[in-house]
């Protein structure tokens, strides 16, 4: 470890001057990857949030659930499928730009910027990144959810959940999304039986993709399925 190195912010490339003190001497894993400006633009999810999906609650709620989760939970088919979702940050304009650069431009190393909060908050037995279709994976060159795990040094469990086919999500209505044919399949189930499974994705938007995956994993024997995302859309 070089005590006087000047690191550069992973996002804006400005030089971060590290105060060299006891903290950085004894916990080198807490190296600073973002400058304080960029860090300040990331907005942690604070205040009263939905017990299930981590959305900041507004007037559209029933007790500690947001209205979307109420609807999922009222449907016997989906009730209790997703134990809960944890998201790290509000999907604000800054994070939108960061995720776009990470996922669409393919700046893989950005995943590292989130290593510390992920290590801190991610708890479970088995961590499964939401798989991409073959075409998407080829196009992007990597799976962003897998990158987030690997950036945090957490082993991903692959080959259990795979995709059967792709369809554009965003253009569908809520009803169509819920009744979407299953886009995932389970190819192997021995590793998840009786385990607390956590699904990893970059953004929680409607929760529909995650619930479809969770449903299969539960049916295949997972004790519980949670999800963990960088952003809450």
């Amino acid at each position: 470890m070089n005590l006087f190195r000047a690191d550069r912010c992973l996002l804006c490339h400005e030089i971060i001057n590290l105060p060299v003190g006891w903290v950085s001497l004894f916990s080198p894993e807490k190296e600073k990857l973002l400058c304080s400006d960029c860090e300040g633009k990331l907005q942690p999810i604070l205040g009263e949030t939905c017990r299930l999906c981590c959305r900041i609650l507004n007037e559209f709620r029933r007790e500690d659930l947001c209205i979307d989760c109420v609807r999922w939970e009222e449907d016997p088919e989906w009730q209790g499928v997703l134990e809960r979702n944890i998201s790290l940050y509000v999907y604000n304009d800054f994070l939108k730009e960061v995720i776009a650069r990470f996922k669409y431009r393919g700046d893989y190393v950005i995943a590292k910027a989130f290593a510390n909060p992920i290590k801190e908050k991610l708890i479970g037995d088995v961590f499964i990144p939401i798989p991409l279709s073959e075409e998407r994976l080829f196009e992007r060159g990597f799976n962003q959810s897998e990158a987030l795990l690997s950036g945090a040094g957490i082993p991903a469990t692959l080959g259990i959940l795979t995709r059967v086919h792709t369809e554009k999500q965003s253009k569908k209505t809520r009803n169509e999304r819920i009744h979407l044919p299953q886009v995932f399949q389970i190819t192997e189930d021995t590793k998840i039986y009786g385990k607390k499974v956590v699904l990893i994705d970059d953004i929680y938007t409607t929760g529909s993709t995650l619930r479809h995956a969770a449903k299969l994993l539960k049916e295949a024997g997972a004790k519980s399925v949670e999800s963990f995302t960088l952003a809450r859309g």
Binding site: G106, D107, Y108, V109, R140, F142, N143
Partner: peptide, 15 residues
């Protein structure tokens, strides 16, 4: 420069 595991060529490579 940084490195990433490329799904196209299955190498960890520089970009």
């Amino acid at each position: 420069f940084a490195k990433f595991p490329c799904a196209r060529c299955r190498n960890t490579e520089v970009y």
